[in-house]
Amino acid sequence: MTFIIIKLHLNNLIMEEGKQLESFEAKIAAGHKIEPKDWMPEAYRKQLIRMMSQHAHSEIVGMLPEGNWITRAPSLRRKAILLAKVQDEAGHGLYLYSAVETLGVDRTELLHQLHTGKAKYSSIFNYPTLTWADIGAIGWLVDGAAIMNQTALARGSYGPYSRAMVRICKEESFHNRQGYEIMMTLAKGTSEQKQMAQDALNRWWWPSIMMLGPSDDQSPNSDQLMRWKVKMESNDAIRERFIDRTIPQAEFIGLTIPDKDMKFDEKTGHYSHGKINWDEFFDVIKGNGPCNAKRLKDRNDADKNGRWVRDAAIAYAEKQLKEKQAS
């Protein structure tokens, strides 16, 4: 008897869940956003937590290679701009952590995953910034590629993520332009300066097109994630758009894309690129890039060294509250 009741109860639950899924999918198909308190499938929540936290981690780890040049920016103007840009990246991290928290995960937990190496961040930030031109290349190429990805994600179904993306995209445009301006200035400078810009392009080009993710045959987009508008476009489609837009920009300032096989395909109206070294990409993801260990150490140090500030601030706030209550 009890067994039958439990079974009936389970059946009801499954039916209930089926109905909820149906209305969830209908909402997305109609172009409505899913909000934090709405019902959502567990797979949707999990995938979003994974994607959004990786995105948040990428923003704050991305502050490290650029922060590296703040003290050595070539002029006060450049220094002020770079400071503002790196501060933006911190802001982007905060928007995103706050958006992930709406899915019921605590920021402390997310940071713990980053610091213990359990969570990933974008492969691109494991490359070093060797010269000033690298700061130009990052703004132009890395932020340029990120904009392609993020404008697609802004159309995604999860409200808090999509709104964070809209905000971020507005700010990225400044990052992109200031990077191009650095490259343009160097390209118009002395032959050493032009060489420095070309060298930065040579080193950042391939990692930048790789950061948009494995090619579609290696990363089959599940229909479900597309249907749920968690993923909006395939990696290759976004990569193609990035390349199409970037090549004329390089040509305009007289720099050469380091890909001998890159050519414009009249038939498709797109550039086709040479073979991407995916082994390198997966190797960097696995932790073997030039700076993985350093990035993780710097993040852990920042967290450890800032701990007393967090503790002191909370102790002070508690003391203030007690004094207020006593008086």
Binding site: L94, Y95, S98, E101, D106, R107, T108, L111, A164, R307, R310, D311, A313, I314, Y316, A317, Q320, L321
Partner: peptide, 30 residues
Amino acid sequence: NDSQWPVWEVFLQGNPGIPHKHVGNVHATD
């Protein structure tokens, strides 16, 4: 327990005369 501090919801007034609008949140001690 390492604390990331309590969460505060943030409302912003963009221009004089218009309502404050929710824009997101921050962590802070007070």
